[in-house]
């Protein structure tokens, strides 16, 4: 078929670029977001290390981060992006705002997942002499693993959408293709193909996330 001969390669590369960008920013967002989420949780009232000022400041930073629309973030932190990766364009230029945007999101997701862990389990851990650090990784993180995995698939899908937006800074990927061909060159068939690929990808990631979450959850067998 002519269409695939002509655009197949382009769409395939676009798909791959989107996945890589999403995955890389996801990884960085989790590296930063897990400690942030844990910290904001355990500094909460009645938790392991209550600390009102730290809790308030972290909560505030997370909220501000989450309330800035991505498209505005993308442009407004260009100087910061240049400072970190040396450019504000292309894949590298997109990853910095993506990580900045996703980290507070991830922190809240992680906080939420950990908060669902039954308080009596934390107390049991405490009663057996676990330190705060041990409670975090042997009880909180371990017991909420299925929920964390579900959160990760949501994060991935959300970021995937943002990656498409990052197409406007020439980041490549399916969003970039959809914008360039559909919007600027009036080739709706390419745009539609790119969108369909996005839909398929989201569907696959969601199913995969659910399957992994179920596989790691010992409460369902």
């Amino acid at each position: 078929m002519g269409f695939f001969a002509e655009y197949g390669q382009l769409l395939l590369e676009g798909t791959w670029d989107s996945i890589v960008m999403t995955a890389v920013s996801c990884i960085f967002a989790y590296v930063l977001g897990i400690p942030l989420g844990v910290l904001v949780l355990i500094t909460g009232e009645g938790n392991l290390r209550p600390n009102r000022p730290v809790h308030a400041v972290l909560g505030w930073i997370i909220n501000v981060g989450r309330s800035i629309p991505f498209i505005i973030l993308l442009f407004s932190i260009i100087p910061f992006t240049r400072l970190i990766v040396g450019t504000s364009l292309g894949v590298l230029g997109a990853i910095v705002p993506l990580v900045v945007c996703a980290t507070p999101f991830v922190a809240r997701m992680v906080e939420q997942s950990l908060a669902e862990v039954d308080a009596s389990l934390i107390e049991a851990g405490e009663a057996f002499g676990a330190s705060a650090w041990q409670l975090v990784y042997k009880v909180y993180l371990k017991e909420s693993l299925p929920s964390l995995v579900r959160g990760a698939s949501i994060t991935f899908i959300t970021l995937f959408g943002f990656v498409a937006m990052a197409g406007c800074v020439g980041a490549g990927g399916l969003g970039d293709i959809a914008i360039r061909y559909g919007y600027q060159r009036y080739q709706p068939d390419v745009m539609v193909a790119a969108v369909i690929l996005c839909v398929i990808l989201v569907e696959v990631v969601q199913s995969l996330g659910n399957a992994i979450s179920k596989a790691v959850d010992k409460r369902t067998r």
Binding site: S120, L121, A124, E126, A127, K142, E143, V216, K218
Partner: peptide
């Protein structure tokens, strides 16, 4: 605490 055992009404076993 490591040398005082404790059991609970709802068992409090780690589910995972």
């Amino acid at each position: 605490r490591q040398f005082i055992g404790m059991i609970f009404q709802n068992f409090s076993l780690f589910q995972q």
